[in-house]
Design a protein around this nucleic acid. Structure first.
Length: 599
RNA sequence: GGCCCCAUCGUCUAGUCUGGUCCAGGACGUCAGGUUUUCAUCCUGAAAACACGGGUUCGAAUCCCGUUGGGGUCACCA
């Protein structure tokens, strides 16, 4: 049941599913023992944590840490239609994954048992949908002072006026026609339950925002109209809720994306009207795709549509997608498939969707620490040199928490360069010790590649780590590095070119080498990367062939290709029996092929 | 379109506030060599930018103005 829209008091609590934190009696007062710095991240739970939001959260977190302050997480769920608890949970999980811990906000227990969030006394809920009483109390004060007023135009009426303004090529601005109705009449109609919105009476003077990144930005009164602060459904709009809550929660510094810059004069005007102090504002540059477009979930849809069309599919390849809806989706460029179904579709088509949300990067096999490092460099720079004279670029969250400041923030939008992220990722993985890598790889596989996790035990993965780690840019790459071990010995596919080059070419010397190696391999004891390497090396020397002429035939015989981890590791991963079986099968296969060509 | 913000290599950026030490430094990518049993690494080297036009100044990437370009925003979304 939606809140009663007829009055601004006596609100019936918004029905919600059980939440981690219940609303306590909120006094709306600012806590007396307030820390010096309070920052916040205030996502709207309408989807997953976007990469831009992740950076905003990261910087706010870092700023609070840097100054020994508090970092607050608040859920801005005033859009009843689009908000969901599932989205909230996903956002909390992504933040926790990235190591962005909040001091106050929804309580959350991370997989490692760490508890985040919790309630600060006398602040109340960190879900805006549970703070309606507070908004209404503030709103009532504004109306009584004549700083806000009910307005009764229908959305249709306003839309018509807006269209007319567009047609006339002038900017649209609310015309204050509600003020033509006498005040007592407006109050009476509102109290009588007539459907209405509440608008803020914008003051006449210009408003200047002192931004820590961009400097002073002044907006003239002509540009600011009487915006809506309470919607027809009784919920506050973003502008109102954000101002009330930031004050109630003692927020001192607001660090957010530049798309909010133009909102800030409204917020400042509201703060003045409500008697609040204006926090310090810092607006960060935006993050874009390499082509300059906005990084948005639409990119995933676009990629999927293109792949489906390229594959010539006219029916969904997975059962969970409704065929009729699929056809419509395919035809209609503006139609978006939801994120989960897109992921299934991509898996079926064996394509990668562009990473947009924090969770996408996790699924793609990036370490949280890598993403944090890379993200921190998008729009911020430590302006510090390494001892060797190069710029400091590689650092961890602790460094950020110790050094982040507004001075390092840039003004220009940056493009998200996946190549550079990939380079960072590869370096970070290489820098791990084998055990840590194996653990990370295992943890990733358990959640994102269950087949791999089932096929290899944790012990197996520790054994594989030395071979896999140096060849991975991401944890997901591990699978392709040891792909040869994932196929059955009877299912190895021999690459024709490789076979020809190393086994057949030169009077089939390679094949001969293979035969001679069999008894040597059969005799290696124990069968480890080192002993294999030594035994094969000895043969390479004694035969006078050299390692190149010996290793490649073996490599092709056991993997089917000329590319694999170092030979000792490759053979040891398979084990002696599987190696011998594969050598036999390879020899047989090449001989059969030769017989066909020249009977 | 109105308003607002921005402008250094292909990309992320240092240098801009406090003009000279910058014929502009680093990183990713690219290209060319080298190491290596394949791959991946690793090493060495190279190409690569102050958007344009005025002005101020002995001197401008740095200050001012304009132009162009890019972006944001103009919701009962946040």
């Amino acid at each position: 049941m939606p809140p009663d829209p007829r009055t601004w008091e006596g609100r019936i609590p918004h029905p919600t599913t059980p939440r981690a934190v219940r609303n306590a009696e909120s006094s709306g007062s600012i806590p007396s023992s307030m820390p010096q710095v309070v920052t916040r991240f205030a996502p709207s739970p309408t989807g997953r944590l976007h990469i831009g939001g992740a950076r905003t959260a990261l910087f706010n977190w870092a700023y609070a840490r840097r100054h020994g302050g508090k970092f607050v997480l608040r859920i801005e769920d005033t859009d009843q239609r689009r908000s969901s608890d599932a989205a909230t949970r996903g956002i909390l999980r992504s933040l926790a994954w990235m190591g962005i811990g909040w001091d106050y906000g929804p309580a959350y227990t991370a997989p490692d048992g760490r508890t985040l969030g919790g309630q600060q006394p006398s602040v109340g809920s960190y879900y805006q949908s549970e703070r309606l009483d507070e908004y209404d109390r503030r709103l009532r004060g504004l109306i009584e002072q004549g700083l806000a007023y009910p307005a009764f135009e229908s959305p249709e009426e306003l839309e018509a006026k807006r269209q007319a303004a567009i047609a006339a090529k002038t900017g649209y601005k609310y015309d204050r026609s509600a003020l033509d109705i006498p005040l007592e009449q407006r109050i009476a109609r509102m109290d009588a339950g007539e459907s209405h919105v509440v608008r803020f009476r914008m003051p006449d003077g210009p408003v200047t925002v002192h931004d820590r990144v961009l400097g002073d930005v002044t907006v003239q009164p002509e540009e600011l109209d009487d915006f809506i602060i309470r919607k027809r459904d009784g919920f506050p709009t973003y502008h109102f809720a954000v101002v009330v809550d930031d004050a109630a929660m003692g927020v001192t510094h607001v660090l957010r994306g530049q798309e909010h810059l133009i909102n800030t004069p409204r917020h400042v005007a509201l703060q003045r009207a409500l008697g609040f102090e204006t926090p310090v504002y810092a607006h960060m540059p935006l993050i874009f795709n390499p082509d300059g477009s906005k990084m948005s979930k639409r990119d995933k849809d676009k990629t999927a549509k293109a792949a489906v069309k390229a594959a010539g599919l006219d029916a969904p390849p997975v059962g969970s997608i409704d065929p009729a809806g699929f056809a419509e989706w395919l035809e209609d460029k503006t139609r978006q498939m939801d994120t989960d179904h897109l992921a299934e579709l991509a898996a079926a088509l064996k394509i990668d969707l562009p990473e947009i949300d924090a969770e996408d990067f996790q699924a793609a096999g990036y370490l949280a620490s890598t993403l944090v490092n890379f993200l921190a460099l998008l729009g911020w720079n430590p302006k510090t040199k390494n001892p060797d004279g190069t710029d400091l670029e590689r650092f961890d969250a602790d460094y950020l928490a110790a050094h982040f400041d507004f001075d390092g923030l840039g003004k220009t939008a940056s493009k998200f360069d996946r190549q550079k992220l990939l380079a960072f990722s590869g370096d970070d993985l290489t820098a791990m010790d084998d055990g840590a890598f194996a653990d990370a790889w295992r943890g990733w596989a358990e959640r994102f590649d269950p087949e791999l996790a089932e096929r290899f035990s944790a012990a197996d993965m520790r054994l594989l780590a030395p071979a896999v780690k140096p060849r991975c840019k991401t944890l997901r790459d591990g699978r392709s590095v040891i792909g040869f071990a994932l196929v059955g010995d009877d299912a190895v596919e021999f690459d024709g070119k490789a076979v020809h080059k190393v086994l057949i070419k030169g009077d089939r010397k390679g094949l001969e080498t293979l035969r001679e190696l069999k008894p040597i391999i059969a005799a290696i004891e124990p069968f480890t990367p080192e002993t294999v390497e030594v035994a094969v090396g000895v043969y390479a020397d004694s035969s006078g062939l050299g390692m190149g002429k010996v290793a490649q035939p073996l490599r092709v015989a056991v993997t089917g290709t000329s590319v694999s981890p170092p030979l000792g590791q490759t053979l040891a991963i398979l084990g002696r029996d599987r190696v011998l079986a594969r050598i036999d099968r390879c020899i047989a296969s090449v001989e059969a092929q030769a017989a066909e060509v020249s009977p």
